[in-house]
Nucleic acid binder design. Structure first.
Lengths: 333, 333
DNA sequence: TTGAAAGCGATACCAG
DNA sequence: CTGGTATCGCTTTCAA
């Protein structure tokens, strides 16, 4: 028994009323006889009627869909954020059109254009694009936009933790634990920089580290930009007088360092400290408990959606949102 | 300068031609004067014309969108699969409508119904629903469907590795490494079972373990269903004569076990072995290298999409696909 | 309380 | 080669 999708006309025909009346019944618009309404509702159910979204969208102009433009899902910071956004969006009757950019600005803008054709009601973007031309393209879309992670410019509402402040305070936090040498691992930044894409968030973190070093009046600025175990180990051991800590841009890097240290016989935290970023779930089951920063991902996701939602509803009072964070308890410092 | 979205009519008006002609030019359908075509293309660009997707969809019936119904993104097996599906879909001109079920069958079917209203061209589902009623609801949608991870029934094309076979062979693999006691961690299964949802994949794995035990004629069937460190440690130490290994349903559980053993002074692999499942990226940076199973996630994702794509294009010869796997190299056995 | 008709934006087909 | 018109399914007036 193959059911052909029924339309409002089919219902109208069966009930011997007009399409308009069916519409009134289905969307309880009032001004309709209870009896006819019930009859219509009943046959709608019998015919397994499902409203055609495209048709509705064509006339109302709203798709109840938001485009989410993210970098990838391998990074659990991103995937958890998407998970939260999907949930809160759906609770509010919105669906998610997901596209991934993989740090490719061309792919990003192309994807966004397509989302615009689909008349998504709003966009949540983890931008990789940057520059005036990119900005203008986005503005011309005439679609509410919220940016996350990387900032484009003050013209776009941005939601995030203050990475720079976090890193600055992280340095102080580490210093309070008795460390005087802090290495910042900025892995992979060179390649990103060469691609000329938006690396706002990464830059902010590094700036925060530098500011922290200055504030705490530490002697050495130690930034490593490419992954090489020996370089790191050598650097850690270069000065035995002052305790050294490694500040990482993410927890997965921190886990990597933890294991490297274990392999090379560097005792944590006795001989070197480690601090991560994100506080991913996995940390709970790894020992020693890695010191990290909890960025309230779920709250971030909800906030991003709610601000976008307000923009969609023509609320012009929206503004940037800086989400709070907290340092976790850890055994690696 | 606010650009109002222009339509085919606007272009027609400017060029003093009919909408039909504009359509011919825009979609190079042929049978059109080169000069008028160029003029139309030019003004289309000037007006920054973007075709309205809903309108097109309404008349053609195709949305070039596939609905992806997944469980969550916290599990990196899922998120990487989604990542791959998004990529291959986009390469083929399809967009992704993502919904997450969080193991809630009600939420799943509701979401699927909504996707159906949106007339997605096809569905890739990681099902949590089960049973005749659920099946009928899906069939009535009249939309091509591919299932992944959990199977619903032979009526739905299914793509996955053969979990049962993998686990059976994993037992043999472990035995070949000299172990005679194998514990299978089936964490969280009780709760899932109580919810009455689809736990096909989990069951298959456990069955595979049981078959492996039988095949290798091991004396003890050791399945632990709830997480309790002491129980596990006690069980591992219960028999000092025969080497014990722990077979895990995922790598994150394996990592947890690795750290538990380290905390409790159980030497790996000297006193106990560990084997994971999925071969997630993180394993690369953790030492010792955890023995795992590589499920070719990227290939799985591509296969799922291509089979769905063939169904969408009315290819009726599609059938289930069992993707190959391989045991990785590891130091924990 | 209900019906009829216009319209959303694009496509498709039939004339000319 | 081009114009006109019907159509997709639903919403939204305006009359009745």
């Amino acid at each position: 028994m193959i059911t052909i999708n029924s339309t409002i006309k089919d219902i109208a025909a069966v009930c011997e009323v007009s399409a308009g009346t069916v519409d009134r019944a289905l969307n309880n618009r009032g001004g309709i006889n209870e009896a006819t309404k019930n009859k219509i509702l009943k046959t709608a159910k019998e015919l397994d009627y499902q409203p055609n979204h495209a048709a509705r969208c064509l006339v109302t102009g709203s798709t109840h869909t938001i485009g989410v433009v993210c970098i990838n899902l391998g990074n659990s910071f991103f995937s958890l954020l998407i998970e939260e956004i999907e949930q809160i969006a759906r609770d509010n009757g919105y669906f998610i059109n997901l596209i991934l950019t993989h740090n490719d600005a061309g792919k990003e803008i192309e994807g966004i254009q397509y989302l615009a054709r689909r008349k998504v009601d709003g966009l949540i973007i983890f931008p990789v694009g940057i520059g005036k031309e990119y900005e203008n393209k986005l503005k011309r879309l005439n679609i509410p936009i919220v940016t996350l992670y990387n900032r484009i410019s003050p013209d776009f509402v941005h939601v995030d933790v203050d990475c720079r402040q976090i890193m600055r305070n992280a340095v102080s936090f580490i210093v309070q634990k008795g460390y005087r040498r802090i290495i910042y691992l900025n892995y992979g930044i060179q390649e990103l920089r060469e691609r000329g894409i938006n690396i706002f968030s990464r830059e902010e973190r590094c700036l925060g580290y530098l500011e922290g070093i200055k504030k705490e009046m530490l002697k050495e600025v130690l930034v490593i930009e490419s992954y090489d175990p020996d370089t790191l180990i050598d650097l850690v051991r270069a000065n035995a007088d002052e305790k050294t800590a490694v500040l990482c841009p993410s927890d997965s890097v921190a886990i990597r360092v933890l294991h490297l240290f274990r392999d090379r016989g560097v005792k944590v935290p006795e001989q070197a400290g480690i601090m991560g970023f994100d506080n991913i779930d996995l940390l709970k089951v790894i020992s020693p408990r890695i010191q990290s920063v909890d960025c309230k991902i779920r709250y971030l996701g909800r906030k991003a959606f709610s601000i976008l939602h307000r923009q969609i509803n023509k609320d012009s009072t929206v503004h940037d949102c800086v989400v709070k964070y907290s340092f976790t308890e850890g055994e690696t410092l």
